[in-house]
Amino acid sequence: MSVLQGDNSRCEFTGVTFAGHGQNLDTGTKVVHVGKNTSSYINTKSISKSDGISTFRSAVVVGQNAKGSKSSVSCESLMLDDISRSDTIPAMDIRTDDVDIGHEAKIGRISDDVVFYLMSRGMSEEDAKALIVSGFADNVSKELPLEYAVEMNNLIRLEMKGTVG
């Protein structure tokens, strides 16, 4: 949880989750805007496969004195098969006017068109799917230091191993 106490303070929350078989990754964040002109930015990506469940909860509270504050929440989910699940649960408690609050949630599945396109250029089905998943998490991994970004892509590749029967 972040509390934006001072005027003009700001915070950012970025997260990637990957829920595999038997996992229910219930994550979330909370931001409280107290000071004037404060801003928060929440950006998450959830991936679920093999009956994994991703749940993301967000709460944005804007107090009476937090005039001129801004908050942007964006949650994107990608489901790799039809037995997986993804939930986004946003909560907003806004107690003043003159604020700019946005919430955006997107849920999608892996596109057959893209898989076929990549395969037609010689990529195996597994590699094609791993590339699509890395691409989905791309704007988050760009925020990471290089060593971590490489590690994250390796993890995605590892998780995707054996998803193609």
């Binding site: 596109s111 068109d113 893209v114 076929f116 396109y117 990549l118 395969m119 037609s120 250029r121 010689g122 990529m123 195996s124 089905e125 590339l131 699509i132 890395s134 691409g135 989905f136 998490a137 791309d138």
Partner: peptide, 21 residues
């Protein structure tokens, strides 16, 4: 498709898809 591609066939798509990453 990947095996056919390796044998030397190529298809230029009518609507090429966007692939971020």
């Amino acid at each position: 498709a990947d095996k056919i591609s390796k044998k030397g066939m190529f298809l230029s798509f009518q609507n090429p898809v966007e692939v971020p990453g």
